[in-house]
Design a protein around this nucleic acid. Structure first.
Length: 437
RNA sequence: GGAGAGGUGGCCGAGUUGGUCGAAGGCGACGGUCUCGAAAACCGUUAUAUCUGCAAAGGUAUCGAGGGUUCGAAUCCCUCCCUCUCCGCCA
């Protein structure tokens, strides 16, 4: 949600954001309603003011005649007030709805574009691997080595589910251990900050095991309830399954007023993520690139407004650090206006090279929400000077298990059919160097 | 699932015979006195949102949410939501 004062004063910017993000919201209607709404509010508050004064007079007045006259006046005021309030209500409702529909405004360096093709490559690392043998994609590797069973999962649960088994399952836990070790270490975070040249506190991430279900209200306040088609809903309890740990990490501080000294707050969670993948029929039907359920390590941070941009850069730096450690070729994408999320002010994606598809595929995302979510959630910070501001929020993938496993499997496959375990994970897998006997 | 208690400001916590209660008190935070400095002590300040306004300032709303009674509601009535405790069940 945007600040109505900001909207009034920055109409060209908002118009551009609506257009570039390819959203349909009637800004003129919003502004008209705002005008009407404020007129009515001024009128109503004037009446209330008189009501309050008269009420005090009644309490103090001893002359029964005057008192009776005042009571009569109060009755009149009450009726007039009711009328005015009934006039305001529908206007306020439509106003609120339109306000919530407005997307966040992209930052200046976000490329303008209609869709994925407008995304900008910021940089890339590593070369797409060349193999001197016939390569397999992860599906084939997984089936051959007994690491994936989609057939059985389809029978037990349905399509887009899989059993991840054996050493691949062990690798998932090794990845978890590896990422958690790094993110919870003040020293490591400090090192990444220094190496990246960012001027930020070295606050480590607080590990969290959050709820996997969420109430519609909290979901809505995160602005993630829509598109509802994409969500799993448990009707008996009116709860939704989260599509990302972000969904229950973000509302961790809703309706709270934090202290400046509390920030930044950095959280990392490991959860399953549930997505219905409505409208993506036929896309990525093979393997585990696109699943209804996948495990993900997710970072979510709350910080001071003036630091949020750097904070996002830090999250991106961490993602790159992971991918380099894992020796996976990747590129960093500056996601364009038409492809980014509604609450995002800036979205950076990581794309990993997937030899099985001969393509870069999205594995990570880093979203800077500025104060857009915080305003809905009412997560504020009391600054040292006494002023109150909305915090800025960032969320970013640490490691999305399905896709990162795919990247490792396909990039590390060897001519003998085995999969080399990334060096960084070997100690976490008991010294084992490859998968497949 | 059964029974009970409760939801008040950054936090804790008074206030329920309806008016002068945005709300005592404590803690915290901030400013000051004292000190070389700090602690302690003492003095003072300290909610949020919104509307009008260039500002100064003022108005309005907010005691879980919504509705009702009343000239007037944190206080009374109704509905809903949430939390906690005990019992049952259970990893």
């Amino acid at each position: 949600m945007l600040d109505i004062n900001y909207i009034r004063e920055n109409q060209p910017k908002i118009r551009a954001a609506i257009k570039n993000k390819n959203v349909k919201v009637d800004l003129d209607q919003l502004l008209t309603l705002d005008e009407k709404r404020r007129q009515l509010i001024t009128d109503i508050e004037g009446r209330r003011s008189e009501q309050n004064r008269t009420s005090e007079d009644i309490a103090k007045e001893s002359d029964p005649k005057i008192k009776q006259a005042a009571i009569e006046r109060m009755r009149e005021l009450k009726d007039g007030l009711k009328e005015a309030e009934e006039l305001l209500e529908p206007i306020q409702q439509e106003f609120n709805a339109l306000l919530l529909d407005l997307p966040n405004v992209p930052l200046e360096d976000v490329p303008v574009g209609a869709d994925e093709s407008g995304n900008e490559i910021l940089r890339s690392w590593g070369e797409p691997k060349k193999f001197d043998f016939e390569i397999k994609d992860h599906t084939e590797l997984g089936e051959t080595l007994g690491l994936l069973n989609s057939q059985r999962a389809a029978e037990v649960t349905g399509s887009r589910f899989a059993y991840i088994m054996g050493d691949l399952a062990r690798m998932q836990f090794a990845l978890l251990q590896y990422a958690l070790n790094l993110l919870t270490s003040r020293k490591e975070i400090g090192r990444i900050i220094t190496e990246t040249g960012l001027d930020l506190p070295d606050t480590p991430f607080i590990p969290v095991v959050p709820p996997l279900m969420i109430r519609p209200e909290a979901f809505g306040r995160m602005d993630r309830l829509e598109p509802r088609d994409e969500r799993y809903h448990i009707e008996s309890d009116d709860l939704y399954l989260i599509g990302s740990a972000e969904h229950t990490l973000g509302p961790l501080h809703m309706d709270q007023l934090l202290k400046e000294a509390d920030l930044p707050l950095r959280y990392v969670a490991y959860t399953a993520a549930f997505r219905r993948e409505a409208g993506s029929y036929g896309k990525d039907t093979r393997g585990i690139i696109r699943q209804h359920q996948f495990d993900k390590i997710e970072m979510e941070t709350f910080c001071l407004p003036e630091q949020s941009r750097k904070e996002q850069d830090l999250l991106v730096a961490i993602q790159e650090y992971f991918l380099r450690d894992l020796e996976i070729p990747y590129r960093v994408m500056n996601v364009c206006t038409g492809d980014m999320g509604k609450p995002d002010a800036r979205q950076i994606d990581m794309e990993c090279w997937m030899p099985g598809q001969e393509k870069y595929r999205e594995t990570h995302s880093a979203d800077l929400m500025t104060d857009y979510q915080a305003r809905r959630l009412s997560t504020r910070v009391k600054r040292n000077d006494g002023s109150v501001q909305y915090v800025h929020m960032n969320d970013a993938t640490a490691l999305a298990m399905g896709r990162i496993l795919v990247a490792i499997m396909e990039n590390n496959q060897q001519s003998n059919g085995k999969i080399a375990i990334p060096k960084i994970l070997i100690p976490l897998m008991g010294g084992q160097e490859s998968i497949g006997q």
